[in-house]
Amino acid sequence: MVKLFRPHPLVVLIPLLIAQLAILSLQVRNSEGTTLLRRATLLAISPFLLAANTGENFVGSVWNEYVSLREIRNENESLKEKIQAMNLESNRVLSSLRQAGQWQALLELRGQLSFQTKTARIIGRSPSFLSFTLMVDRGSEDGVRKDDPVINAEGVVGRVISVFPRTAEVHVILDSDAAAGSLLSRTHLQGVISGTGTSFLKLNYVLNQEDVQVGDKVVTSGLDNVFPKDLTVGRVVRVRQGESVFKEIDVLPVVDFTRLETVLVVVNLRPRS
């Protein structure tokens, strides 16, 4: 006996119900004139449409953000380059101004000084913190000799320790081996100023009982036969009673060694003709 194929009732029921709804939808229109079938179809696919739209928006948004970020990054790099160029230009201008200022001050000082000097440009600095030396663009061909004092408009810079035909090496007063005969301009007390290897100087050989005050100006005494008399060295910033007979006096140099670019080399202490 042949058994006829009999589908599950739901297989018949569901298509029948859908067919009835389809028939119904073909006739029924809502107030906007849309049929139920279209409404149902739209209702069914709208989540997918929404998801697709959201996805598209998301991808679009990410892409736009990416493009924007790239543009911003390029712009940022371009701006950075411009800023660097402007900084360089600004530094160059400031440097020129500062140099011009220093040159002007030196020329003024030169006019006031009674001895012969040569203006020199600093062309190198010692890379080590242990030795404070400078290289200047004046040498023996310019009349520079060993032990010539080096000054600027503010005061004492150092002395020449090595001379080459076109250059010279200057021992800065800050170096722990550097020293100069000095005196306190207020009291005319004499001493020896020496470097400490730091940014401060030390005034030695001033007796404990002497009157030294913070702010006192220290100038060269001219007794060392190196530096001319009355060149400013610095100002007293700290005074202590020493354990020996001498005071411990800290002096802050007037010369700003970090910004030093031009100096005067005193080539002859004799008065100019």
Partner: peptide, 24 residues
């Protein structure tokens, strides 16, 4: 369900209701 569907459609066609209302 087939008979029900047919009866419903006939009922809709003569009652003036949208076709498929009683059919469903």
């Amino acid at each position: 369900c087939v008979i029900g569907g047919v009866i419903g459609l006939i009922q809709d066609s003569i009652s003036g209701l949208p076709l498929g209302m009683n059919g469903f």
